[in-house]
C-alpha cells in the first residue's frame, strides 16, 4: 500500500509496476470497505425489526400471587409465551430433593441452588430434550419415577427439584428469572 501515498505523477508508474498495490487498488479496497459498512448498516434495521418489539418486551415481566396455592399443589403461569411451573412442595418432596447424592445426577446441581425459598420450586415447564411440556402439574398426572415431572414425548423423568434423572433430556428444567416481592408474591422477568 506504500504506493498509495505517491503524488499523482507517479500513480501510473505504480500501477504498471508489479510491487504491492497501486492507487487504483487502494481506491477499490476503500470503496469496497465503505460499501460493506453501508450495506451492513442498511441491513441492520431490517434484521432488528424481526427482534421482539417494544410491546412484546413490555409484556415480558408478570406478577404472580402464590397465596392461594396450597401445600402439594402446583400452578402453571404463562410467561413470555412459555409455561412456568410453580410447585408448593411438601416436606417430603423437599427432603427427597435435598438428600440426593449429587454424583448420581446427570446435571448435578444442589437443591438450594434451584430455589429461593425451599417450599417454592419455580421452573420453566419445557422439557430440555425437544421442547414438550412435561406432565405432573396435576396430582392425577404421572410424575415419573422421582415424583417430579414426566415428559410423555420421549420419556424423561424429572425429580422434585426439576432435575433430570432418567430419559433422553440433557439438562435440568431451566430456572426463570424471578424475585420474591412479598411473602407469597413473585415477579417473573
Amino acid at each position: 500500500m506504500a504506493q498509495t501515498t505517491h503524488p499523482p505523477g507517479t500513480g501510473g508508474h505504480a500501477a504498471s509496476g508489479g510491487e504491492g498495490g497501486s492507487r487504483r487498488d487502494f481506491l477499490y479496497l476503500a470503496t469496497g470497505a465503505v460499501g460493506v459498512v453501508g450495506a451492513a448498516s442498511a441491513a441492520w434495521p431490517f434484521i432488528d425489526s424481526l427482534n421482539p418489539a417494544a410491546d412484546t418486551l413490555a409484556l415480558a415481566s408478570i406478577d404472580v400471587d402464590l397465596a392461594p396455592v396450597a401445600v402439594g399443589q402446583a400452578i402453571t403461569v404463562t410467561w413470555r409465551g412459555k409455561p412456568v411451573f410453580v410447585r408448593h412442595r411438601t416436606a417430603e418432596e423437599i427432603e427427597s430433593a435435598k438428600t440426593v447424592n449429587l454424583g448420581d445426577l446427570r446435571d448435578p446441581v444442589a437443591d438450594d441452588a434451584r430455589v429461593k425459598k425451599p417450599e417454592w420450586l419455580i421452573v420453566i415447564g419445557i422439557c430440555t430434550h425437544l421442547g414438550c411440556v412435561p406432565l405432573g402439574q396435576k396430582v392425577t398426572d404421572p410424575r415419573g419415577d422421582y415424583g417430579g415431572w414426566f415428559c410423555p414425548c420421549h420419556g424423561s423423568h424429572y425429580d422434585t427439584a426439576g432435575r433430570i434423572r432418567k430419559g433422553p433430556a440433557p439438562a435440568n428444567l431451566v430456572l426463570p428469572t424471578y424475585a420474591f416481592t412479598g411473602d407469597a408474591k413473585i415477579r417473573l422477568g
Binding site: W44, P45, F46, D48, S49, A53, A54
Partner: peptide, 9 residues
C-alpha cells in the same frame, strides 16, 4: 411505535 426500526421501514 413498537417494532424495532418499524418507523424507518
Amino acid at each position: 411505535r413498537d417494532v424495532n426500526y418499524g418507523w424507518l421501514i
